[in-house]
Amino acid sequence: MSGHTDAPYEPVFVGKRRAELDELLTRYPTKQAALLPALWIVQEERGWLPEAGMTEVAAVLGLTAAYVKGVVTFYTMYKQHPTGTHFIQVCTTSPCLCAGADKVVDAFLEHTGCKELGLTSPDGKYTVIEVECLGACGFATPVQINLDYVENVTPEKVPTILAGLK
């Protein structure tokens, strides 16, 4: 995972990733339409979206960096900061709040050592945030850890869930 440092930025769109983007471009009549997929590729490679990553995407798709940033900041899943290895996203919207999602958040904050929402734990392993509806309200409380859903989470299950994370 990249840190918040000024390490030289290695371009993402070379070799296999470039080929992947080229294939994506065939799906749309405009280059710009590949913006969201291209940003996903950078985030997969770098773990988050540094400014240099946005600049690279802008150059590849013929856009400006400011425009790309405007798009990045619109969508909550694009990370503008590096996070812990395990990015824990707890749904706290109304149906999950009914099921006690706020207590689940507290449990994660306590057991990860993050203490505060959005902060990364001192060991760099965890970042906990609240998110809006994950679309799994019948399985409250759903928690998305990196890309995977864990459903029916209760405060009691949190230590076991954390222990299961590699």
């Binding site: 400014e51 802008a58 425009y67 790309v68 940033k69 405007g70």
Partner: peptide, 27 residues
């Protein structure tokens, strides 16, 4: 900047009431 100057170096950033006009560092 986008439609007349054709050089969109500023864009609305973020959303909701946090939204502001912003630019990229080199723009």
């Amino acid at each position: 900047m986008e439609d007349v100057h054709k050089d969109p170096v500023i864009e609305v950033q973020d959303r909701g009431d946090r939204a502001r006009i912003g630019k990229a560092p080199d723009n």
